[in-house]
Write a protein that binds this DNA or RNA. Structure first.
Lengths: 281, 281
DNA sequence: GGTTGTGAATAAATTCACAGCA
DNA sequence: TGCTGTGAATTTATTCACAACC
């Protein structure tokens, strides 16, 4: 091609890889910070560092959006903020409901970042009648009975579930039946939804378990010795050559969870080396 | 089964793909539920359904752990619970500290799932002197000044950061310097850490933005109450599957060619209030 | 000079499909 | 017969490296 002078995804139809989509918010955040500091342009290298990825990946990601940079110069910060916002659908308003106003639901309701960018908490819903009317984050909690009406009246298409696990699937079904097509699930359970509905989950204990897995191997060789030992022989030094200073930084909930975590040479272990590496079984 | 010495994966010691590791907690949760119902064995198909993945993936994942199933029968639930727990390092105790006891930090402190499986909240830490001594989740909040001592005394290697974004990097550095090698970051910022330290992040607004992206391309515009939204030249594109959701196989490469007319030339700064993203207030 | 954008190469993850065993 | 375990095929993601352009 090499045509277009216009900034426009020439032949680039919308086929943005999921991994790229998951990183766009990261770039957007970094760009917003630059914008607030009135930085006019930024190179892929600088922006990548700020977002915690490498520059090749960033450029490739941006290439799916179109040609928004200028060779030899970099990217115009404001323009890119706008383009990414638009791509993510943040130029429109997304009313959201939070169902389950317990500790977590209340905390999220108060979370500033919520409303920061295109999202607006349209309603807080809880099944407990005693909660009804109570103000949380300056907003009266509404009862579950009104869920359908609330969804409809506000044109809500995104729901956040912060109920106990046992109630999540049922709440999910009601949300979907009422018209919600995207769900962010904080309840530790797998939701099953009809096709066309997106679910993303945020799960504290899963994240901790993943960390524990890696942590376990930093604690020196010898895990799993109780039962079958087998010549370690491992130890193939991974390549890694991440020249970029900062180490890992890992990925989002699902989709792309990179966690570089190459166990390169870790005989170092933390200062506190007490935890028994080998469990008694 | 496999009497005698359980033959280990042999050449398969350390090489569990990251994607597999990220799913092990999911399998474990499903297995635990089965265990509680005293179900003795389960097939890959059943377990996969319960965990929200497909059976081929599940079997492949398990193959990295070893041969723990029985052909023609399935997997022994209890045995698999144990093997996965061990693999994830959950047979040992992981003391964890939570830094930043605002709304979110307090909510997490109270979160039951925390202690459920190998993890134990060793301390709650906050920078606000007014918080010191106050009980949260039945535990007195301690002051940031004591962070290093707390980490050391308790042999903490996993830290959870729930501070405002602005404080996160500094807290992170102190945690790492004190010996923490795994961090779960809830603050909306990229943490940079030395090699050997794992960071996983949980970020509400990123998740919402990803959902918004997909939402935007479902059914054109959808129920947005829309204000003076600029026409995003909606193009179709198959929704792709994401995370846990079951459906999502509809690939359908977007055909079309034409060029999306992004007529966006309006004012970019929509009606957004530009609220600074801060954590719980 | 400097930096983007992108084909080509590589790596990682997923899915297929079936041999092999209980 | 039924279901696991896994090589092979496929798809998706990342990285390389350099031509194109400012």
């Amino acid at each position: 091609m090499a045509t277009g002078r216009t900034h426009r995804p020439a032949t680039r139809s919308r086929g943005i890889p999921e991994a790229t989509v998951a990183r766009l918010p990261l770039y957007l955040r970094a760009l917003t910070a630059l914008s607030e500091r009135s930085v006019p342009t930024v190179s892929s290298e600088e922006l990548a560092t700020a977002a915690g990825v490498n520059s090749a990946k960033l450029r490739k990601d941006f290439s799916y959006l179109g040609s928004y940079g200028t060779r030899g110069v970099g990217y115009d910060v404001e323009y890119l903020v706008y383009q990414i916002s638009r791509e993510l659908g943040l130029t429109q308003d997304w009313p959201v409901v939070i169902v389950g106003i317990g500790n977590l639901g209340a905390a999220l309701s108060n979370y500033g970042g919520f409303a920061s960018r295109g999202f607006r908490v349209a309603a807080l819903i809880d099944a407990d009648p005693a909660m009804a009317g109570k103000p949380v984050a300056g907003m009266p909690v509404q009862h579950m009975d009104d869920l359908e009406r609330i969804i409809t009246d506000n044109g809500v298409s995104i729901g956040v579930i912060t109920t106990p696990a046992g109630a999540a699937q049922q709440v999910c079904e009601r949300l979907v039946a009422a018209g919600v097509t995207s769900i962010l699930n904080f309840a530790p359970t797998v939701l099953s939804v009809p096709e066309g509905v997106d679910v993303r989950k945020v799960d504290l204990s899963i994240e901790l378990q993943i960390l524990a897995f890696h942590e376990q191997r930093k604690a020196g060789e010898g895990a799993a010795a109780a039962e079958a030992a087998l010549p370690p022989a491992a130890r193939e030094s991974a390549v890694d050559g991440t020249s970029t200073a900062s180490g890992t930084s890992s990925g989002a909930a699902n989709t792309a969870s990179d966690t570089a975590a190459n166990t390169a040479s870790d005989e170092r272990k933390g200062p506190d080396g007490e935890v028994p590496a080998v469990m008694p079984a």
